[in-house]
Design a binder for these strands. Sequence first.
DNA 1: ATCTATTCCGTACGGCGTACCAAAAAGTTA
DNA 2: TAACTTTTTGGTACGCCGTACGGAATAGAT
Lengths: 254, 254
Amino acid sequence: MPNQPDPVLRLLWRHDAGEPEGPRRGRKQRLTVDDVVDAAIRIADRDGLAGLSMRLLATDLGLGAMSLYTYVPGRDELLALMVDRALGRRELPAMPDDLPDRMALIARVQYEELQEHPWLLEISGLRAWVGPGASDRYEWQLSGLEGVGLDDIEMDQTVALLSGFVGSVVQAQQRIRQDERTSGLTQAEWWAANADELDVVMAGRAYPLAGRVGAAAGEAYQAATDPAREMEFGLARIIDGLMSYIEDKQAAER
Amino acid sequence: MPNQPDPVLRLLWRHDAGEPEGPRRGRKQRLTVDDVVDAAIRIADRDGLAGLSMRLLATDLGLGAMSLYTYVPGRDELLALMVDRALGRRELPAMPDDLPDRMALIARVQYEELQEHPWLLEISGLRAWVGPGASDRYEWQLSGLEGVGLDDIEMDQTVALLSGFVGSVVQAQQRIRQDERTSGLTQAEWWAANADELDVVMAGRAYPLAGRVGAAAGEAYQAATDPAREMEFGLARIIDGLMSYIEDKQAAER
DNA sequence: ATCTATTCCGTACGGCGTACCAAAAAGTTA
DNA sequence: TAACTTTTTGGTACGCCGTACGGAATAGAT
């Protein structure tokens, strides 16, 4: 015996339950759900998830705080709608012919999206709702991997591998940005200001590799004008690994 | 002119500023910072970051709420201490001889740790403090990659690639667990209960690939008794890609 | 004109992090 | 021993948060 279907699905897919058309009773809503979600995305883009409160959003929309709850059952559901709409608003470019290029494109789209909507990475304890945006995106990602010799599970894992990697790169970048914002110092300035203190505090413990590598990495990321460069190394290795797996598999089948 | 050093560093490294030794004035602290941090980790392991409030932690320790603030300046700093202590408490196994094994070990340690302390993935907006636990860990990770032909920046990026990938795998696993917890249904049950509703709500939109692949992936993950298997595919591809890069580089140098 | 369904929104509750302050306890000094 | 100084302790309170509740306003149906 199946349970009740999940009511949030109707909202995600903007499916007005039951009512076929025509005017309905009661007072009219001044806004649409999309208005609400778009405003929420705008705020979160600027101030992060922590800066998005129901009261602020309501005020921003010219509503009383509690009126929001006629559009959306609660904050978590609003976040789910934001995620799906952010995914859905982006238009998905045509897949190129070359397979490695298709993999890189899947990663690049994810990368740009996370740059644009950093709060996507802040959402962690939330359920993974199936909405139109997520579905379109997943379908598009898979279309870049269809027919190359991967089985279904491998296709899913490949998508997960590519977008998971991008997520971790952007998260690392954002942590750096966060450090600079809250300390008011650039990475270089922070290390300069704390070098003596670190010497004192480490009190004899030596980090030969970490010291050397950390300094080199710090300088390199500092100098990087184009932050996308930080992604290149890992992405190239991943695509290499995927391509050689696919080629081996094709060779074995022949 | 350098700014003031960061006061949290003293705390992270448990460096009692100034006072060399001997009895100090004033009332004695009933507990140590480690007591506080360990209790916080215990709570977060069980209930997640959302379940860890300052009041609850204080009560758990037999303190009044505000007494916590003599051990720790605030909640964010407590989280930083928790992260570093969680990293530091794990003992790091010796690196094996084989390079691919060393890479796999770096990933496996990260994997086990995130399973043990899922809240590590919930911490996102926080600064990346340099503590003894993080430093030991980074040094250990780098020791597995030293002398194989990678330059410093590549070593850093390789560590980031491996542990970033593991993070995304565990995060995906946890999202599934979260879905099952809040919906009260297993993945299979949820899809069964919502299949009809999804048909209605999707209203003609077709997802040929997503439907096929999603179903296959869902079944596979369902059946997986050992969740570590979900990591194998991606990790194998990454290590392949890294190894072939290193081998090419060594060949070019010779 | 009345009824009913719906949206709007003011008020309020419990929980959060934490600022502030007075009381308690320990070492130092007289 | 008594007075002073320093530190911990913990009660109270402030301003946020998400949101439950209920009454007022507004729309179509009768």
